[in-house]
Amino acid sequence: MPPRLHTDLAYEGELRRIREMLLMMGAKVEEMLGQAMKALVERDSELADRTLYIDRQINRLELEVDDLCLRVLARRQPVASDLRFITTALKVVTDLERMGDMGVNICERVMELNEEPPLKPYVEVVHMAEAAQEMLREALDAFVAGDADRAAAIVERDSKVDAYYAAIFRELLTYMMENPRNIYRATREQSIAKYIERIADHATNLAEMVVFMVRGKDIRHVGKLERRASTRAAPAAAAVTDDSDASLRDLAETGRLKP
């Protein structure tokens, strides 16, 4: 972040307001995720229902951020770090809004799950949600501090959340294979894990944008290709996923799993 303030303090105030609203959106997403997990573990559907409303606040903030960014672009003609900040904010706001939508989906699945007795204690999925929350918090902290190193480190952490997802999916598959009656609950929990995994992806996007904002250098896609190359070196998880896809296909086609 540039250490000095704008000579035009109203302009400075507008940029600060955008920063604050983005932070607020991030805090709301974190809150949603935290409450959704609480509602899942404590089987509190009312809490899940209340949590849905947070998304409306996130959507409202999205509109406000978009509006203010457009006004700043039109009236201040920002350049250099200010220009990178505004264009980053316009993208970050979309990712945050999508995270809010994921939060809604999670709450809906939680309410469905709470209708039935739990398949098993919800442990991994809660850990996974914590990991995603932490990524989001770190990404926003890096955004505020203008800390590219910190942001770049977050990008690396996405694979941890991906690994959680693979493990949860693998375990749920065994439940489904064991008894078709488990499928309804297992697919719901699997969806929740998938949404959390998507939230972590959006947090990764955010971190990549922070690196661009600070350094003026785009690290998107490059990193992903490298990461893909590194997962190819350890194909175990991917193989399992492939197997599970095949098993699901069998299930869909024949109505039963091959022994």
Partner: peptide
């Protein structure tokens, strides 16, 4: 480059309107 990623902080301050 100057208007998206200047390398000198004095350029940055001037073109973004931070005149001190």
């Amino acid at each position: 480059v100057i208007f998206t990623k200047p390398s000198d902080p004095r350029t940055e301050d001037y073109i973004t309107g931070r005149f001190g």
